[in-house]
Amino acid sequence: MNPKRALIRSALAGVIAAGLGQLASAHDGEPAAGKEKCYGIAKAGQNDCGTATHACAGLAKKDNAPDEWKYVPKGTCAKLGGKLKPPGGK
């Protein structure tokens, strides 16, 4: 058997053993401990017909016409600015 096939066999055996074991024990500990970031985020439903936003949005005196200042990114990107680099300084 070539090495890749041997690896496939052992990797699948590991997955199967862990999977069947997980079913048997019903609860598994923290998966892949410490490796991933986990966030629980609740989101509100959105639909295109309701007044999901409060009525004031529609009652605003002016349309949201473009202005020059709306094209300038503010917010927290100033903190990263030009500091971020892809690897190799591309």
Binding site: Q46, D48, A55, A57, G58
Partner: peptide, 18 residues
């Protein structure tokens, strides 16, 4: 009519914001 227009715009912006 503009009230409805702005409400549609706000709903869509709100969805993207979310």
């Amino acid at each position: 009519l503009a009230i409805y227009r702005r409400a549609v715009e706000a709903n869509r912006r709100g969805a993207l914001r979310s």
